[in-house]
Nucleic acid binder design. Structure first.
Length: 233
DNA sequence: ACCCAGGGTCATA
DNA sequence: TATGACCATGGG
């Protein structure tokens, strides 16, 4: 088996995932406002728990930037308990929505140049790197790659971008893949791989990336050699 | 009972 | 720059 260089390997990885998962249609939401709200609710929280919160917010007509900006954080907190960190997230939702309104709303921000938009969003309390990247990719359709914990772990295990930090990896991926739709699909697929196969305890059976995964190769070698050591890089 | 989830902020060294 | 504490519910 050929060991591919980073740039051709990321393209091969994308090809495999697209072939395996097809179009995953992320972000799962009906409106841009809902993407923003979901992006904050899902911070270190499973999507299943977020869905319950979103349904409750919808029932209260609190699923828009406008309505949340006018809300009391204590009232919002009551609807989003299932997402965890609910006091912190309720406050974040209200403050972030206020900040966005003061900047002209999502519509006003949509005309902003990408780098400027990045720095503007990242300066809002409650919006960190990954949340900012998700907003750029899925709300504003910019060619931005979302670097999350799963992605870092998967790249580490398959043997991509060894020794690079998150910022460098994101830059390299965006150089290799420039299409917004593909970058969004890539992140979505990597989250699925992470959930199904690449948590802290790996489950390599049936993983679509096993054919290009260094970790998987070590496992196989270990089995045939009766070796104990498995390096995660 | 323990670990983790589609992170981010803040204090500390 | 790089850890650590903290936020907190729900599923495995």
């Amino acid at each position: 088996m050929i060991i591919l260089q980073n740039q051709s390997k990321i393209l091969e990885l994308y090809r495999i995932l697209e072939n395996h998962y097809g179009d995953l249609k992320w972000w799962p939401a009906e409106t841009r406002d809902e993407i923003l709200i979901g992006a904050i609710l899902t911070q270190n929280t499973s999507w299943k728990n977020v869905e319950k919160s979103i349904q409750r917010l919808k029932a209260r007509n609190l699923i828009t930037v406008n309505s949340l900006a006018k809300s009391n954080p204590a009232d919002v907190a009551e609807e989003i308990r299932s997402s965890g960190f609910y006091n912190q997230k309720a406050k974040r939702l209200v403050e972030v929505c206020k900040a966005i309104l003061s900047l002209g709303g999502l519509g006003g921000l949509s005309g902003m140049e990408t780098r400027h938009l990045e720095s503007t969003l990242i300066s809002i309390n409650g919006i960190g790197m990954e949340t900012m990247e998700s907003i750029l990719c899925y709300i504003f359709n910019r060619s931005v790659f979302v670097m999350d914990k799963y992605t870092f772990r998967i790249f580490e295990r398959v043997g991509l971008f060894k020794g690079k930090d998150r910022l460098e990896i994101r830059k390299l991926v965006e150089e290799a893949i420039k299409d917004n739709r593909k970058l969004g699909n890539l992140h979505a697929a990597l989250v699925n791989v992470g959930k199904d196969h690449c948590k802290t305890v790996p489950k390599c059976d049936g993983c679509p990336l096993s054919s290009i995964c260094m970790y998987y190769r070590q496992i196989r070698k270990g089995v045939s050699d009766h070796s104990q050591s498995v390096s995660t890089g």
